[in-house]
Simulated scan of single mutants.
Amino acid sequence: MSPTRRTTRRPWTRRRLPGAAAVALLVASATACSNEAIDEWSRGGMPESITKQAEITQTLWNGGWIAALATGVVVWGLIFWACVFHRKKKNSTEALPPQVRYNLPIEILYTVVPVIMVAVFFFFTARDETEITKVSNTAPVKVYVEGYQWSWRFTTEYEGQKVVTAGIPVDLSKQDKDNPQGPQLVLPVNSRVHFDLHSPDVIHSFWVPEFLFKQDVFPGPKHNEFEITTLDRTGVFIGRCAELCGVDHSKMLFSVKLVPQAEFDQFIKSQAGSAQ
């Protein structure tokens, strides 16, 4: 083989290698996106949970969708069956097909079946709601949440030490997922946390989407409380007020940061007794 032919083949080989790498990268990206889409579909569009209580909500949500789709299939099947087998015959002289009235078994069926379905939904909803809102008052981490117009104050108590974090209405132009504005609540993973909610002015609502749960924050002597058990998933998660509470309602943002237990212990020691 002549030197000229060798020099013409090498550039072609060099061009193919980047092309193959690009195709491999594209396939890997498509696979990752596909897996992410499948995971989101398996959650029914809900955010990925970060508490054990949120997993209960997710299971109830999925069960509700399965039941609704099963009911839809039955209804669509009956509609299709009626359209096909009870349509007007081609050579029929009748204006309408034979009418059936006062069929007692059918009327009992479509009365009893919905009652049973509602009863089943009510049972599982009441059971899961009782479990989600159960309070033991023995959680090692206690958080007193004060929602006010238009921000939040968090007082975290842990092993006799307190950390207070408060904020002001955020600048929405600076809000970013990687750099969230507003006060930040730091919590440990794999731990039970007790929340006590109150407000000095109007009704607010404490909501972190990844909790799959929100709770109203009332003014006056009435207050709500709940407990969560965090999962082993670190990260920063955006929270907000979910109750229209005034002109700067949209600026009432905060974040929850889940950290390992050792990092949380260090945070409490370094910030205890000081207000952020």
Rank of each mutant, 00 (worst) to 15 (best):
V145L: 06
I168K: 15
V163M: 08
F124I: 12
R101I: 14
V115W: 07
T93R: 14
I168C: 05
I116N: 05
T155C: 05
M117I: 15
Q161T: 07
I132Y: 00
V135P: 00
A126N: 08
V115N: 03
P140K: 07
K174A: 12
T130G: 14
G160L: 12
L109Q: 03
E107Q: 15
A119P: 04
K162E: 14
I132R: 10
Q175A: 09
R153I: 08
E129V: 06
P105D: 05
T165F: 03
A139I: 01
M117C: 14
V135Y: 01
Q149A: 10
L104C: 06
V112R: 04
P114Q: 09
E157I: 09
T156M: 02
K142Y: 03
S173D: 13
N137W: 04
K142I: 14
Y102K: 07
V113Y: 10
R153E: 13
P97F: 01
L96H: 15
A166H: 06
P98S: 08
V113Q: 09
V135M: 03
I116M: 15
P98W: 01
V113E: 12
N103L: 10
P169N: 08
I168R: 14
V163I: 12
E94M: 10
K142Q: 14
F121T: 03
F123P: 00
A95G: 13
I116Q: 07
F121L: 13
A95Y: 05
L104H: 11
R153N: 12
Y110A: 00
T125H: 13
P98C: 01
V100A: 11
A95N: 09
Y144P: 00
E159H: 12
A126W: 04
P105I: 10
Q175F: 04
M117S: 14
V163Y: 09
G147R: 01
S92N: 07
V135E: 04
L172I: 13
V170W: 04
N137Q: 08
N103E: 11
G167V: 06
Y110C: 11
V113S: 10
V135C: 04
F121E: 10
A166V: 07
K162V: 01
E157V: 13
S173W: 05
V112G: 07
K162L: 14
A95F: 08
G160W: 09
Q175N: 10
V145W: 03
P114G: 06
P105Q: 06
V163D: 04
Q99W: 03
I116Y: 06
E129K: 11
M117D: 09
T111F: 12
I108Q: 01
V120I: 13
E159R: 14
E157C: 06
V141R: 03
S151Q: 06
K134S: 09
A139W: 00
P114K: 09
Y144R: 11
Y148Q: 05
L104P: 01
A95Q: 11
A119K: 10
